Structure formats: C-alpha cells, structure tokens
Amino acid sequence: MRNEMMYRPIINEDILHYLRTEQKQLTGKLGALEELAHENGVPVIPHETVVFLQFLLKQKQPKNVLEIGTAIGFSASLMAESIGKEAKITTIDRFPVMIEKAKANFEKLGLTDQVTLLEGDAADLLSTLEGPYDFIFMDSAKAKYIAFLPECLRLLADNGVLMVDDIFQAGTVLKDIEEIPRKNRAIHRHLNEFLEEVTKSPELTSTLLPLGDGVALISKNN
C-alpha cells in the first residue's frame, strides 16, 4: 500500500532529511509503531508532520477530537498521547484491513477507552455526528476533501482548528490538468476546488504549510 507521494518531497531533500531525523523522535510503543509503518510503506504522517502536530495540540489542548481516515491508528494514537487521557478522540475508517490493525494498535497502546473507532464511509457517518469538535484531522481520500468540508465545518467548534493532510500531491496539484495522468485527474480537480474554497472563502481563515505532502490549517471566522 505504498503512497508514492511520500517519496516525492516538495522541499529541499537535505532540509527534509534534517526535519525527519534531527527533530525529537517518538519513543516506546508509539515510536515502534511509527518505525514499523515506515518499514512497511504504510502511509502514516511523516515525522515532520508528527512533530508539528504534537506542538499544535499541546498549545490547543483540545478536549474533543475527530479524525477522518484512521489507517492503522498511528495519528489517532499520537493525538491521544499528545493531549492526555481527558480528551476523547473519534476516528472514522471504512477499510476492514485498516480497521482490524487500528483496533489491535489501540489495544496495544491502551487507548481503547479514549479512542472511538467508527466503521464505515465518512460520507455516511459525518452527518450522524453532532460535535462540536475542538480539533478535526482529515487524512482520507483526497478527492473527497471538498465533499467532506461542509460537514467538517459544521462539526468544528467556533474556536476549533481543521487540519487537512496531503494537499499538494508532491506539487503536481499546481500543474495543468492535461499534464496529470487520467487516473489522478479526479483527485487533481477536487483538490484544486478544495484549495480554492479554503484559501478564498471570506468565512474561513487558512494557512498552507509544506509539511509532508502539504498541510492546510483552517478555522472559521466568527
């Protein structure tokens, strides 16, 4: 399940190597999970995004967190460790193989009481949630970001932050669509729609960061 974009850096490779190797590393069971994911090519967030997310969450201290895209449970576990046991995390995934691995990892890390895993398609589940969530992390199907955005904003607390991962597609998001392989054009088109909305909407404040394959931070203007 190799994510090719993880291996096509959008910043200087020497800087990328420094960010991934010289910043504080994870330890214990969570560190072992990160290392195992990288060894097996599982598309978890890269280490520069790990460090940024830790910092952001420790400043924000959210009490109610929503994640769209559980994968093997690494980022949900990272968030749980970063903000402490008083916070609750709800995470959504639709792939049985990932769900099974995530459940096993939550059990191994002692997080089953703190993390609630919802099984199914986010397109169906988001409308059933009430929120509000202080922090939402979206790292799912890139072509669905624009479709999920309205529900994320509905669920987001007035002072909350929505963090969206993998928005640049290794920089190809800026290319003319005719240069994009046909199999990737839906992602390209919908990501451009998403970027247009979050950067231009008068109702939102956003910033884009070159972490990993690109990160967007979004908040609502109250």
Rank of each mutant, 00 (worst) to 15 (best):
M1N: 09
M1E: 08
E4N: 14
E4S: 13
M5N: 11
M6E: 08
M6N: 13
I10M: 02
I10A: 07
I11W: 10
L16K: 07
H17I: 14
Y18M: 10
Y18S: 09
L19G: 09
R20W: 06
E22R: 13
K24S: 11
Q25W: 02
L26W: 03
T27N: 12
A32L: 11
E34P: 02
E35M: 09
L36H: 06
N40D: 07
V42N: 01
I45F: 12
H47N: 14
V50A: 02
V51H: 10
L53V: 03
Q54R: 15
Q59D: 08
K60M: 12
P62A: 04
N64S: 10
V65L: 15
E67A: 15
I68F: 07
I68R: 06
G69I: 06
I72K: 03
I72Y: 09
S75C: 14
L78C: 01
L78W: 01
M79V: 08
S82K: 09
G84P: 09
K85F: 04
T90P: 05
I92S: 02
D93H: 05
D93M: 05
R94V: 12
F95W: 12
V97A: 10
I99W: 02
A102S: 12
A104G: 10
N105R: 11
F106K: 01
F106L: 14
E107F: 12
K108Y: 09
K108G: 07
T116G: 13
T116S: 15
T116Q: 15
L117K: 05
A123E: 12
L125V: 08
L126T: 02
S127M: 12
T128K: 11
T128N: 11
T128G: 10
G131K: 05
P132R: 04
D134W: 04
D134V: 06
F137Q: 02
M138Q: 11
D139G: 07
D139I: 06
K142N: 07
Y145E: 05
A147Q: 10
L149S: 03
L149Y: 03
P150L: 08
L153G: 00
L153W: 00
R154F: 04
L156G: 15
A157P: 08
A157Q: 07
V161N: 05
G171W: 14
D176G: 05
E178Y: 04
E179D: 14
P181C: 00
P181A: 00
R185F: 00
A186I: 08
H188Q: 00
R189D: 11
R189M: 14
R189S: 13
R189Y: 15
R189I: 09
H190Y: 08
L191S: 00
L191N: 00
E196S: 14
V198G: 03
K200P: 04
K200C: 08
S201T: 02
S201E: 03
L204K: 04
T205I: 15
T207K: 10
L208D: 05
L208R: 12
L209M: 13
P210C: 14
L211N: 11
L211D: 01
G212C: 07
G214E: 10
A216S: 15
A216K: 12
I218C: 08
K220F: 07
K220N: 07
N221I: 15
N222W: 06
